[in-house]
Design a protein around this nucleic acid. Structure first.
Lengths: 251, 251
DNA sequence: TTCACCCGTTATGTATACAGGAGGAATACA
DNA sequence: TGTATTCCTCCTGTATACATAACGGGTGAA
């Protein structure tokens, strides 16, 4: 399939889902705002049926909530909602790491993980704050976590993890972009990479409990980044879905 | 709303969802079977739109899987899929118990849990195997777990737990019905109730790690019940959704 | 006999029409 | 002026019609 054909070949439902998700995460739709189907139809140029489909899926995804009297509204998240979502991801990634450690994994797959670590180590520009290094880091970090999730070799767990990561600020990549703007959180990158290394080591040594604990603690780095980002609004705006966060200070 | 009006007042989508779920769990639709929308329309008497809605929701629920070329098929689960689903529930309930323990809960809500325990203790007929005692136990056990989930006071976690319990054999009540038929698994009831008590105690004493470990181990009782039920087909048929389980023995 | 291709049937994806109901504005009354 | 009521508008839920793509049967050739 050629690149240019993508927009035409993909289903209208998928198009609506992607476009709506983008509108929600970018903050184009305000939190709590009710989504009129007709308005979305006009905005996206697809008919009501695929729009409805997309709305249902985005509700399951957690970005929308059903209004009792019918229809959907953009969800809003408090700081403790985010904390919990991160903790949930930690618990699930912890379980994945534990599965990998206790059940064992093929040598080749562990090598992939180690390659990923080495590539991150090779990113020398990170501490200089260059933009391209950071986007590389974002990509590699996402890949590391994807490999880790797959390592558990459990479709059910994979499903639940994907669900947990659907909330952008709960995903492993959620706050990484913001870190580029926060000098204080550069240090966290070093911690994160060391945790990555320890995690792989724990899995290799089949230390399930240790792998679990490390994965949980690793997820909690996202909470620290969140705290730092709250102090620096320009960084917070780099977080995907920041518009969904309920902030007491703002009206 | 009067009882009799239920069928008329509820939306067609909900009707279709409930009816389809029942058809799937009861085994009226075979695992792997593709669901033709038109066939469902004829069977349920509602039009394609609500049927499609229900199909999408049941896919998100995990009972159906999307076929790449379009449409949906009834999902099938291997023994290890079920094991994993139970372990995932354990991890999430463990997190809920940990939240409750570490963050503390109001005295009144703990009292509700204790009342529930006392009611289970009061079921004298359990060891005799009387049917009505068992259905009472099923109800009380479900209530205990619902109270426990709510104790964490975390909407995000509640959501994930509900999702995990959507698979009937992963839910806390999944194998309880089957236990009535299995003399060997009666003993498990005693263990379960003791774990319930220890769990409440741990939460009360704010022992987060202990509460977590207990909840996980408690979930694993479901695995033991599954193993026992596999040996006794008449008990396995009492498990909701047993028809979805892939069994190497059966063709 | 087996494989490949073609064509008809059927199912899904999409669009749209219609009905019932919720929500808001305007008006009448206290 | 405040409140209740009524009416109107818009929206959602549902049904159905249409187009396109998939699946299977059948026929032909190797």
């Amino acid at each position: 399939m050629a690149e240019g054909e993508f927009e035409r070949s993909v289903s209208q439902t998928m198009k609506a889902q992607l476009a709506l998700r983008e509108l929600i995460l970018s903050g184009a739709l305000r939190q709590g705002e009710r989504l009129s189907e007709l308005a979305v139809v006009e905005r996206l140029g697809v008919s009501r049926t695929p729009v409805r489909m997309a709305l249902v899926r985005l509700e399951e995804e957690g970005l929308l909530e059903a209004i009792p009297s019918g229809g959907f509204a953009v969800k809003a998240f408090s700081e403790s909602d985010i904390d919990d979502a991160i903790e949930i991801r930690g618990a699930l990634e912890g379980l994945a790491a534990r599965f990998a450690a206790e059940r064992g994994v093929a040598r080749g797959r562990l090598a992939e993980l180690k390659d990923c670590l080495a590539e991150i180590d090779a990113l020398k520009g990170l501490s200089d704050g260059s933009e391209e290094s950071f986007s590389d880091y974002v990509r590699l970090n996402a890949r590391f976590h994807a490999l880790l999730h797959a390592l558990a070799d459990s479709p059910a767990l994979m499903r639940q993890i994907e669900r947990a990561c659907a909330l952008p600020f709960a995903s492993p990549s959620g706050f990484v972009q913001a870190q580029a703007r926060l000098p204080q959180s550069r240090f966290i990158l070093v911690l994160a990479q060391d945790q990555h290394r320890c995690l792989v080591e724990a899995i290799e040594n089949r230390e399930g409990e240790r792998a679990d604990a490390l994965a949980r603690e690793h997820a909690r780095l996202a909470r620290r980044n969140l705290r730092l980002a709250f102090r620096d609004p320009s960084a917070l705006d780099l977080v995907a879905g920041a518009a969904l966060i309920k902030r007491p200070g703002r009206h």
